[in-house]
């Protein structure tokens, strides 16, 4: 990869991202009249009496930011898991992390009535904390399986992840069974994934969780490159294997848990984005990971545009990403070689 090529790709990525970002702000169930928004801003009308400006500031912009943060976070977590497990199919979703996180958030829903009275307990059983605990437990179990044998086949890891995901889903089913019927509609909608946030609190929570975690993972890029040739060679080069594994599993679970607890389990972003970006950049994580963040963010914004505008009503975004990602996953699975992966 020449430097010129690299710069061109970076530029292309950033431009297409900016285009999608802009589209995401202006395309929606109702097309936004920018002139109208500007007039409302100029006249200093209170937000409650300025419908266009209110849609722009309180719906479109937070929604776009949320989609970008969630997509970028899931994509970079996918890169990290794939590098560490040396497996192109390892993602927050296929490893069961997303489902486990969803179960955690779900449990938090159920506990909310019981724990609301006690502030400290309410904090400990908040959506975010519970999602992280469950996601972390899932990653730990998968890791135990991976560490037990040096050459764990992709099939074993995936089956483990899928099985844990199924267990988590069974837990979700059970809690749905226990839940009050009047709550089920809201809970079900959350489970399908959606970035239709209102206001900035969810965006802020996402930003606080995703940005530092993504930064930590990006700083490991050169170490992930060393993993290409296995742990012994990497260790001989001065990579602290234990620390890298712990950091990646912890931070990867955290980033997934934060995203899942805010926007629900959104599948396959961590699979198709790193795969697609890798086709352009080659396997170097120092290029792959930052571009995956941008591409993942743009991809989820694009899916959200489809959800709002092209499909009827407000289709849950998780359905769209899975409909796009599922076939890609199958395509990867049936091919013997994963393009540039030697599996």
């Amino acid at each position: 990869m020449t430097l010129g090529n690299t710069r061109f790709l970076l530029l292309l990525g950033l431009v297409s991202c900016a285009v999608i970002f802009t589209c995401s702000i202006f395309i929606g169930t109702e097309t936004l009249d920018l002139g109208q928004a500007w007039r409302e801003l100029r006249s200093l009308t209170p937000l409650s009496e300025a419908p266009t400006l209110s849609i722009l500031l309180m719906q479109r912009i937070p929604r776009t930011l949320a989609a970008f943060l969630a997509g970028g976070g899931l994509a970079v977590a996918g890169c990290a898991f794939q590098a560490l497990l040396r497996n192109p199919l390892a993602t927050p979703y296929t490893l069961g992390v997303a489902s486990a996180g969803a179960l955690g958030a779900w449990v938090a829903f159920l506990l909310a009535d019981v724990t609301a009275a006690i502030p400290l307990l309410a904090l400990l059983t908040s959506k975010q904390v519970m999602a992280f605990l469950f996601a972390g437990l899932d990653v730990f179990l998968v890791y135990l399986l991976a560490a037990r044998r040096i050459h764990t086949s992709p099939a074993v890891l995936l089956l483990a992840g899928v099985t844990l995901g199924m267990l988590a889903n069974a837990g979700i089913m059970f809690s749905r069974y226990l839940a009050r019927p009047d709550r089920l509609v809201n809970m079900d909608r959350w489970l399908m994934g959606g970035v239709d946030v209102l206001g900035y609190q969810p965006v802020l929570l996402l930003a606080v969780g995703v940005i530092p975690c993504a930064a930590v993972l990006l700083l490991q890029a050169a170490r992930y490159d060393q993993f290409a040739f296995g742990t012994t060679l990497a260790a001989g080069r001065g990579v602290n294997i234990g620390r890298l594994q712990t950091t990646t599993f912890f931070v990867g679970s955290l980033i997934t848990a934060v995203i899942v607890s805010e926007v629900g389990p959104i599948g396959f972003v961590g699979l198709i984005i790193p795969h697609g970006v890798r086709l352009l950049t080659g396997p170097s994580h120092r290029l792959l990971m930052p571009l995956s963040i941008v591409a993942g963010g743009a991809f989820l914004c694009a899916c959200d545009i489809v959800a709002r505008r092209i499909l009827p009503g407000e289709t849950p975004i998780g359905i769209i990403t899975t409909m796009v990602g599922g076939p890609v996953f199958l395509y990867l699975l049936v091919r013997r070689r994963f393009s540039d992966w030697n599996v």
């Binding site: 192109p88 290409a228 296995g230 012994t232 060679l233 396997p283 540039d340 992966w341």
Partner: peptide, 14 residues
């Protein structure tokens, strides 16, 4: 000190 293992299997092509 550098260490060269007996065999390597790169995860992807470089």
């Amino acid at each position: 000190v550098a260490y060269m293992p007996q065999s390597v299997s790169p995860a992807f092509s470089l």
